[in-house]
Design a protein around this nucleic acid. Structure first.
Lengths: 187, 187
DNA sequence: CGTTAGTTTGAGAGGACTCAAAGTCTGTGG
DNA sequence: CCACAGACTTTGAGTCCTCTCAAACTAACG
Protein backbone atom coordinates (compact mmCIF):
# COMPACT_ATOMS: atom_id res chain seq x y z
CA UNK A 1 0.00 0.00 0.00
CA UNK A 2 2.85 2.32 0.85
CA UNK A 3 4.34 1.49 -2.51
CA UNK A 4 1.21 2.49 -4.30
CA UNK A 5 1.01 5.73 -2.35
CA UNK A 6 4.56 6.48 -3.32
CA UNK A 7 3.81 5.69 -6.93
CA UNK A 8 0.85 8.06 -6.92
CA UNK A 9 2.72 10.91 -5.34
CA UNK A 10 5.73 10.86 -7.58
CA UNK A 11 3.47 10.61 -10.55
CA UNK A 12 0.99 13.42 -10.10
CA UNK A 13 -0.01 14.32 -6.59
CA UNK A 14 -3.68 14.12 -5.77
CA UNK A 15 -5.21 16.37 -3.16
CA UNK A 16 -5.88 14.99 0.26
CA UNK A 17 -9.56 14.37 -0.26
CA UNK A 18 -9.27 12.60 -3.60
CA UNK A 19 -6.39 10.55 -2.28
CA UNK A 20 -8.36 9.40 0.70
CA UNK A 21 -11.31 8.50 -1.43
CA UNK A 22 -9.11 6.58 -3.82
CA UNK A 23 -7.47 4.64 -1.04
CA UNK A 24 -10.74 3.81 0.65
CA UNK A 25 -11.85 1.96 -2.42
CA UNK A 26 -8.75 0.00 -3.27
CA UNK A 27 -8.87 -3.75 -3.05
CA UNK A 28 -5.98 -6.07 -2.61
CA UNK A 29 -6.00 -9.48 -4.17
CA UNK A 30 -3.68 -12.44 -4.25
CA UNK A 31 -3.11 -14.74 -7.18
CA UNK A 32 -1.33 -18.04 -7.42
CA UNK A 33 1.03 -18.86 -10.24
CA UNK A 34 -1.07 -19.62 -13.27
CA UNK A 35 -4.19 -17.82 -12.05
CA UNK A 36 -6.02 -15.64 -14.49
CA UNK A 37 -6.43 -11.97 -13.61
CA UNK A 38 -8.48 -11.58 -16.76
CA UNK A 39 -9.66 -13.83 -19.58
CA UNK A 40 -10.28 -13.02 -23.21
CA UNK A 41 -13.91 -12.03 -23.57
CA UNK A 42 -14.26 -10.60 -20.08
CA UNK A 43 -14.41 -6.87 -19.53
CA UNK A 44 -11.34 -5.51 -17.80
CA UNK A 45 -12.76 -3.79 -14.75
CA UNK A 46 -9.55 -2.78 -13.02
CA UNK A 47 -6.31 -1.00 -13.07
CA UNK A 48 -3.69 -3.32 -11.64
CA UNK A 49 -0.85 -2.15 -9.46
CA UNK A 50 1.59 -4.95 -8.74
CA UNK A 51 2.74 -4.99 -5.15
CA UNK A 52 4.62 -8.19 -5.57
CA UNK A 53 4.96 -10.79 -8.27
CA UNK A 54 4.85 -10.85 -12.04
CA UNK A 55 2.16 -11.14 -14.71
CA UNK A 56 1.93 -11.46 -18.46
CA UNK A 57 -0.69 -9.96 -20.76
CA UNK A 58 -1.08 -11.88 -24.01
CA UNK A 59 -3.33 -13.03 -26.80
CA UNK A 60 -3.32 -16.25 -28.77
CA UNK A 61 -3.19 -16.80 -32.49
CA UNK A 62 -2.74 -20.20 -34.13
CA UNK A 63 -1.96 -21.72 -30.74
CA UNK A 64 0.89 -19.30 -30.24
CA UNK A 65 1.05 -16.79 -27.44
CA UNK A 66 1.91 -13.16 -28.11
CA UNK A 67 2.89 -11.28 -24.99
CA UNK A 68 2.06 -7.64 -24.99
CA UNK A 69 3.48 -6.61 -21.66
CA UNK A 70 4.84 -7.97 -18.42
CA UNK A 71 3.34 -6.68 -15.18
CA UNK A 72 6.21 -5.80 -12.92
CA UNK A 73 6.47 -4.79 -9.26
CA UNK A 74 5.47 -1.23 -8.49
CA UNK A 75 4.04 -0.64 -11.90
CA UNK A 76 0.52 0.11 -12.88
CA UNK A 77 -1.07 -1.43 -15.95
CA UNK A 78 -4.35 -2.52 -17.45
CA UNK A 79 -5.80 -3.92 -20.65
CA UNK A 80 -6.25 -0.52 -22.16
CA UNK A 81 -8.87 -0.93 -24.81
CA UNK A 82 -11.09 -3.09 -22.67
CA UNK A 83 -10.71 -0.91 -19.61
CA UNK A 84 -11.23 2.40 -21.34
CA UNK A 85 -14.21 1.35 -23.39
CA UNK A 86 -15.51 -1.31 -20.99
CA UNK A 87 -15.79 -3.87 -23.76
CA UNK A 88 -14.56 -7.49 -23.86
CA UNK A 89 -10.83 -7.95 -23.65
CA UNK A 90 -8.73 -9.40 -26.46
CA UNK A 91 -6.06 -10.30 -23.95
CA UNK A 92 -5.54 -12.77 -21.16
CA UNK A 93 -3.67 -11.74 -18.04
CA UNK A 94 -2.00 -14.46 -15.99
CA UNK A 95 0.16 -14.47 -12.88
CA UNK A 96 3.59 -15.94 -13.55
CA UNK A 97 4.39 -16.06 -9.84
CA UNK A 98 2.41 -15.74 -6.62
CA UNK A 99 1.29 -12.17 -7.08
CA UNK A 100 -0.27 -9.48 -4.91
CA UNK A 101 -2.14 -6.74 -6.64
CA UNK A 102 -3.83 -3.50 -5.69
CA UNK A 103 -6.99 -3.09 -7.74
CA UNK A 104 -8.61 0.14 -8.79
CA UNK A 105 -12.02 -0.46 -10.23
CA UNK A 106 -13.25 1.29 -13.34
CA UNK A 107 -16.40 2.54 -11.69
CA UNK A 108 -14.43 4.00 -8.79
CA UNK A 109 -11.99 5.68 -11.08
CA UNK A 110 -14.81 7.04 -13.16
CA UNK A 111 -16.59 8.38 -10.12
CA UNK A 112 -13.40 9.87 -8.79
CA UNK A 113 -12.59 11.52 -12.08
CA UNK A 114 -15.99 13.10 -12.27
CA UNK A 115 -15.78 14.40 -8.75
CA UNK A 116 -12.18 15.52 -8.52
CA UNK A 117 -10.44 17.50 -11.15
CA UNK A 118 -7.12 16.32 -9.79
CA UNK A 119 -8.05 12.67 -10.29
CA UNK A 120 -8.80 13.41 -13.89
CA UNK A 121 -5.36 14.94 -14.26
CA UNK A 122 -3.82 11.91 -12.65
CA UNK A 123 -5.44 9.52 -15.07
CA UNK A 124 -4.76 11.74 -18.05
CA UNK A 125 -1.09 11.62 -17.22
CA UNK A 126 -1.28 7.90 -16.74
CA UNK A 127 -2.77 7.37 -20.17
CA UNK A 128 -0.24 9.72 -21.72
CA UNK A 129 2.59 7.83 -20.15
CA UNK A 130 1.19 4.55 -21.40
CA UNK A 131 0.95 5.94 -24.92
CA UNK A 132 4.52 7.15 -24.71
CA UNK A 133 5.79 3.75 -23.68
CA UNK A 134 3.90 2.06 -26.46
CA UNK A 135 5.36 4.41 -29.04
CA UNK A 136 8.79 3.34 -27.90
CA UNK A 137 7.92 -0.31 -28.14
CA UNK A 138 6.66 0.16 -31.70
CA UNK A 139 9.88 1.90 -32.65
CA UNK A 140 11.92 -0.85 -31.10
CA UNK A 141 10.11 -3.62 -32.89
CA UNK A 142 10.46 -1.85 -36.22
CA UNK A 143 14.04 -0.75 -36.02
CA UNK A 144 15.82 -3.46 -34.05
CA UNK A 145 16.40 -7.05 -35.06
CA UNK A 146 15.85 -9.94 -32.66
CA UNK A 147 19.33 -9.83 -31.14
CA UNK A 148 19.20 -6.10 -30.54
CA UNK A 149 15.75 -6.33 -29.02
CA UNK A 150 16.96 -9.03 -26.67
CA UNK A 151 19.96 -6.97 -25.61
CA UNK A 152 17.76 -3.98 -25.00
CA UNK A 153 15.41 -6.04 -22.88
CA UNK A 154 18.28 -7.39 -20.83
CA UNK A 155 19.60 -3.89 -20.29
CA UNK A 156 16.29 -2.43 -19.21
CA UNK A 157 14.75 -5.35 -17.33
CA UNK A 158 17.63 -6.99 -15.63
CA UNK A 159 15.65 -7.28 -12.39
CA UNK A 160 13.08 -9.64 -13.87
CA UNK A 161 15.18 -11.42 -16.49
CA UNK A 162 15.82 -14.48 -14.37
CA UNK A 163 12.17 -14.76 -13.47
CA UNK A 164 10.84 -15.00 -17.01
CA UNK A 165 11.17 -18.25 -18.87
CA UNK A 166 12.62 -18.51 -22.33
CA UNK A 167 9.33 -19.09 -24.10
CA UNK A 168 7.64 -16.08 -22.56
CA UNK A 169 10.54 -13.79 -23.26
CA UNK A 170 10.69 -15.00 -26.86
CA UNK A 171 7.00 -14.37 -27.20
CA UNK A 172 7.40 -10.83 -25.88
CA UNK A 173 10.25 -10.19 -28.30
CA UNK A 174 8.24 -11.57 -31.19
CA UNK A 175 10.46 -14.54 -31.99
CA UNK A 176 10.42 -18.30 -31.34
CA UNK A 177 12.05 -19.74 -28.30
CA UNK A 178 14.48 -21.68 -30.42
CA UNK A 179 15.67 -18.45 -32.00
CA UNK A 180 16.06 -16.83 -28.61
CA UNK A 181 17.98 -19.82 -27.32
CA UNK A 182 20.38 -19.46 -30.24
CA UNK A 183 20.75 -15.73 -29.65
CA UNK A 184 21.71 -16.43 -26.06
CA UNK A 185 24.11 -19.17 -27.07
CA UNK A 186 26.06 -16.86 -29.35
CA UNK A 187 27.21 -14.58 -26.55
CA UNK B 1 -12.86 24.28 -38.37
CA UNK B 2 -16.29 22.71 -38.60
CA UNK B 3 -14.58 19.37 -38.95
CA UNK B 4 -12.62 19.89 -35.79
CA UNK B 5 -15.72 20.94 -33.92
CA UNK B 6 -17.44 17.81 -35.08
CA UNK B 7 -14.47 15.73 -34.04
CA UNK B 8 -14.51 17.25 -30.56
CA UNK B 9 -18.21 16.75 -30.04
CA UNK B 10 -18.41 13.17 -31.05
CA UNK B 11 -15.41 12.44 -28.96
CA UNK B 12 -16.23 13.89 -25.56
CA UNK B 13 -18.33 17.02 -25.50
CA UNK B 14 -16.83 20.03 -23.80
CA UNK B 15 -19.01 22.58 -22.10
CA UNK B 16 -19.75 25.80 -23.90
CA UNK B 17 -17.22 27.89 -22.07
CA UNK B 18 -14.30 25.50 -22.44
CA UNK B 19 -15.17 24.96 -26.05
CA UNK B 20 -15.16 28.66 -26.79
CA UNK B 21 -11.88 29.12 -25.04
CA UNK B 22 -10.36 26.24 -26.95
CA UNK B 23 -11.53 27.56 -30.28
CA UNK B 24 -10.33 31.08 -29.58
CA UNK B 25 -6.83 29.80 -29.29
CA UNK B 26 -6.63 27.51 -32.26
CA UNK B 27 -4.27 28.37 -35.07
CA UNK B 28 -4.49 27.22 -38.62
CA UNK B 29 -1.35 26.66 -40.63
CA UNK B 30 -0.56 25.58 -44.18
CA UNK B 31 2.32 23.42 -45.23
CA UNK B 32 3.70 22.65 -48.65
CA UNK B 33 4.67 19.14 -49.68
CA UNK B 34 7.97 18.38 -48.03
CA UNK B 35 7.67 21.01 -45.29
CA UNK B 36 8.59 20.00 -41.76
CA UNK B 37 5.91 20.32 -39.12
CA UNK B 38 8.50 19.23 -36.59
CA UNK B 39 12.17 18.25 -36.64
CA UNK B 40 14.04 15.80 -34.48
CA UNK B 41 15.44 17.72 -31.52
CA UNK B 42 12.68 20.30 -31.41
CA UNK B 43 10.03 20.19 -28.73
CA UNK B 44 6.60 19.28 -30.06
CA UNK B 45 4.46 22.18 -28.96
CA UNK B 46 1.20 21.23 -30.64
CA UNK B 47 -1.54 18.80 -31.16
CA UNK B 48 -2.19 18.54 -34.88
CA UNK B 49 -5.62 18.15 -36.37
CA UNK B 50 -5.45 17.59 -40.12
CA UNK B 51 -8.07 19.53 -42.01
CA UNK B 52 -6.69 18.54 -45.34
CA UNK B 53 -3.63 16.73 -46.58
CA UNK B 54 -1.35 14.02 -45.31
CA UNK B 55 1.72 13.81 -43.08
CA UNK B 56 4.20 11.21 -41.93
CA UNK B 57 5.87 10.93 -38.54
CA UNK B 58 9.17 9.09 -38.68
CA UNK B 59 12.65 8.65 -37.32
CA UNK B 60 15.86 7.69 -39.05
CA UNK B 61 18.30 4.93 -38.30
CA UNK B 62 21.22 3.97 -40.54
CA UNK B 63 19.85 6.26 -43.26
CA UNK B 64 16.58 4.38 -43.25
CA UNK B 65 13.26 5.96 -42.41
CA UNK B 66 10.87 4.31 -39.98
CA UNK B 67 7.36 5.69 -40.18
CA UNK B 68 5.43 5.62 -36.99
CA UNK B 69 2.14 7.03 -38.14
CA UNK B 70 0.48 8.79 -41.03
CA UNK B 71 -1.48 11.95 -40.28
CA UNK B 72 -4.80 11.65 -42.04
CA UNK B 73 -7.67 14.03 -42.64
CA UNK B 74 -9.95 14.64 -39.66
CA UNK B 75 -7.64 12.93 -37.26
CA UNK B 76 -5.79 14.34 -34.34
CA UNK B 77 -2.23 13.36 -33.55
CA UNK B 78 0.99 14.53 -31.97
CA UNK B 79 4.46 13.30 -31.11
CA UNK B 80 3.36 11.91 -27.82
CA UNK B 81 6.47 11.68 -25.73
CA UNK B 82 7.73 15.07 -26.77
CA UNK B 83 4.37 16.74 -26.37
CA UNK B 84 3.50 15.24 -23.03
CA UNK B 85 6.85 15.81 -21.41
CA UNK B 86 7.84 18.88 -23.45
CA UNK B 87 11.21 17.42 -24.27
CA UNK B 88 13.01 17.16 -27.65
CA UNK B 89 11.32 14.98 -30.22
CA UNK B 90 12.80 11.77 -31.58
CA UNK B 91 10.61 12.07 -34.64
CA UNK B 92 10.33 14.24 -37.71
CA UNK B 93 6.94 15.18 -39.03
CA UNK B 94 6.67 16.09 -42.72
CA UNK B 95 3.81 17.03 -45.02
CA UNK B 96 3.43 14.55 -47.87
CA UNK B 97 0.98 16.81 -49.66
CA UNK B 98 -0.10 20.43 -49.35
CA UNK B 99 -1.58 20.23 -45.88
CA UNK B 100 -3.80 22.41 -43.71
CA UNK B 101 -3.63 21.86 -39.99
CA UNK B 102 -5.43 23.12 -36.92
CA UNK B 103 -2.92 23.56 -34.12
CA UNK B 104 -3.61 23.29 -30.39
CA UNK B 105 -0.66 24.52 -28.40
CA UNK B 106 0.59 22.69 -25.35
CA UNK B 107 0.42 25.75 -23.15
CA UNK B 108 -3.19 26.38 -24.16
CA UNK B 109 -4.17 22.83 -23.54
CA UNK B 110 -2.42 22.87 -20.21
CA UNK B 111 -4.15 26.07 -19.19
CA UNK B 112 -7.47 24.77 -20.36
CA UNK B 113 -7.05 21.52 -18.47
CA UNK B 114 -6.23 23.31 -15.28
CA UNK B 115 -9.21 25.59 -15.62
CA UNK B 116 -11.88 23.24 -16.92
CA UNK B 117 -12.51 19.83 -15.56
CA UNK B 118 -14.19 18.91 -18.83
CA UNK B 119 -11.10 19.72 -20.84
CA UNK B 120 -9.12 17.40 -18.65
CA UNK B 121 -11.63 14.66 -19.38
CA UNK B 122 -11.37 15.38 -23.06
CA UNK B 123 -7.62 15.01 -23.12
CA UNK B 124 -7.69 11.98 -20.86
CA UNK B 125 -9.93 10.25 -23.34
CA UNK B 126 -7.71 11.36 -26.17
CA UNK B 127 -4.64 9.88 -24.56
CA UNK B 128 -6.53 6.68 -23.76
CA UNK B 129 -7.63 6.33 -27.33
CA UNK B 130 -4.09 6.85 -28.54
CA UNK B 131 -2.84 4.15 -26.21
CA UNK B 132 -5.54 1.81 -27.44
CA UNK B 133 -4.56 2.31 -31.05
CA UNK B 134 -0.93 1.74 -30.29
CA UNK B 135 -1.70 -1.51 -28.53
CA UNK B 136 -3.39 -2.69 -31.70
CA UNK B 137 -0.45 -1.70 -33.83
CA UNK B 138 1.93 -3.60 -31.57
CA UNK B 139 -0.25 -6.69 -31.82
CA UNK B 140 -0.39 -6.40 -35.57
CA UNK B 141 3.33 -6.10 -35.98
CA UNK B 142 3.94 -9.09 -33.75
CA UNK B 143 1.32 -11.46 -35.06
CA UNK B 144 1.05 -10.69 -38.76
CA UNK B 145 3.68 -11.21 -41.43
CA UNK B 146 4.42 -8.61 -44.09
CA UNK B 147 1.73 -9.75 -46.52
CA UNK B 148 -0.95 -9.82 -43.85
CA UNK B 149 0.05 -6.40 -42.56
CA UNK B 150 -0.16 -5.02 -46.06
CA UNK B 151 -3.60 -6.50 -46.61
CA UNK B 152 -4.78 -5.10 -43.32
CA UNK B 153 -3.50 -1.67 -44.19
CA UNK B 154 -5.24 -1.77 -47.55
CA UNK B 155 -8.46 -2.79 -45.89
CA UNK B 156 -8.38 -0.09 -43.24
CA UNK B 157 -6.81 2.76 -45.15
CA UNK B 158 -8.17 2.46 -48.62
CA UNK B 159 -8.85 6.19 -48.78
CA UNK B 160 -5.19 7.14 -48.56
CA UNK B 161 -3.58 4.14 -50.21
CA UNK B 162 -3.15 5.80 -53.58
CA UNK B 163 -1.66 8.88 -51.99
CA UNK B 164 1.20 7.14 -50.21
CA UNK B 165 4.21 6.06 -52.21
CA UNK B 166 5.65 2.59 -52.05
CA UNK B 167 8.69 3.49 -50.01
CA UNK B 168 6.69 5.22 -47.32
CA UNK B 169 4.18 2.45 -47.04
CA UNK B 170 6.95 -0.14 -46.83
CA UNK B 171 8.60 1.89 -44.11
CA UNK B 172 5.34 2.03 -42.16
CA UNK B 173 4.89 -1.72 -42.50
CA UNK B 174 8.45 -2.34 -41.39
CA UNK B 175 9.74 -3.88 -44.62
CA UNK B 176 11.80 -2.77 -47.63
CA UNK B 177 10.17 -1.31 -50.66
CA UNK B 178 11.42 -4.15 -52.80
CA UNK B 179 9.63 -6.61 -50.58
CA UNK B 180 6.45 -4.60 -50.71
CA UNK B 181 6.65 -4.41 -54.48
CA UNK B 182 6.88 -8.19 -54.63
CA UNK B 183 3.95 -8.59 -52.25
CA UNK B 184 1.86 -6.41 -54.52
CA UNK B 185 2.97 -8.29 -57.61
CA UNK B 186 1.84 -11.62 -56.21
CA UNK B 187 -1.81 -10.62 -56.10
C1' DC C 1 13.07 -42.22 -9.95
C1' DG C 2 9.99 -41.05 -13.36
C1' DT C 3 7.31 -37.27 -15.18
C1' DT C 4 6.88 -32.88 -16.85
C1' DA C 5 8.28 -28.29 -17.96
C1' DG C 6 11.78 -25.83 -19.88
C1' DT C 7 16.00 -25.36 -22.85
C1' DT C 8 19.26 -26.51 -26.38
C1' DT C 9 20.77 -28.25 -30.80
C1' DG C 10 20.33 -29.89 -35.68
C1' DA C 11 18.75 -29.74 -40.47
C1' DG C 12 16.18 -27.89 -43.99
C1' DA C 13 12.75 -24.43 -45.85
C1' DG C 14 11.19 -19.93 -46.70
C1' DG C 15 10.69 -15.08 -46.10
C1' DA C 16 12.80 -10.75 -46.24
C1' DC C 17 17.15 -8.44 -46.99
C1' DT C 18 20.93 -6.38 -49.91
C1' DC C 19 23.01 -4.99 -54.03
C1' DA C 20 22.22 -4.10 -58.71
C1' DA C 21 19.95 -3.02 -62.81
C1' DA C 22 16.15 -2.11 -65.65
C1' DG C 23 11.62 -0.24 -66.31
C1' DT C 24 7.94 3.37 -65.81
C1' DC C 25 6.00 7.83 -64.93
C1' DT C 26 5.82 12.73 -64.79
C1' DG C 27 7.01 17.28 -65.43
C1' DT C 28 10.00 20.80 -67.48
C1' DG C 29 12.65 23.04 -71.02
C1' DG C 30 14.03 23.25 -75.69
C1' DC D 1 5.42 18.15 -78.89
C1' DC D 2 9.37 15.63 -77.92
C1' DA D 3 13.38 14.56 -75.03
C1' DC D 4 15.45 14.11 -70.98
C1' DA D 5 16.02 14.24 -65.87
C1' DG D 6 14.61 12.76 -61.62
C1' DA D 7 11.52 10.21 -58.80
C1' DC D 8 9.40 6.02 -58.19
C1' DT D 9 8.64 1.03 -58.98
C1' DT D 10 9.74 -3.52 -60.52
C1' DT D 11 12.65 -7.47 -61.25
C1' DG D 12 16.77 -10.53 -60.60
C1' DA D 13 20.24 -13.09 -57.95
C1' DG D 14 22.32 -14.40 -53.97
C1' DT D 15 22.57 -14.26 -48.81
C1' DC D 16 21.11 -14.40 -44.20
C1' DC D 17 17.96 -14.54 -40.55
C1' DT D 18 14.23 -16.73 -38.47
C1' DC D 19 10.99 -20.34 -38.83
C1' DT D 20 9.42 -25.27 -38.49
C1' DC D 21 9.83 -29.91 -37.29
C1' DA D 22 12.36 -33.09 -34.57
C1' DA D 23 15.04 -34.85 -31.14
C1' DA D 24 17.99 -34.68 -27.22
C1' DC D 25 19.26 -32.70 -23.01
C1' DT D 26 18.50 -30.61 -18.27
C1' DA D 27 16.37 -29.22 -14.39
C1' DA D 28 12.79 -29.47 -10.76
C1' DC D 29 9.50 -31.85 -8.12
C1' DG D 30 6.39 -35.15 -6.07
Amino acid sequence: MADFLHFCNQFSPLNQEAMEELFENLKIKHFQKGDYLLKIGEVCKHLYFINEGLTKTFFIKDDKEFINVFGIENRLFTVFESYVTQTPSNFNVIALEPTTITLISYSEMDKLCKKHHGAETFFRKLASLAATKMTRRISEILEENATERYNLFVKENNQILQRINLGDLASYLGITQQSLSRIRAKK
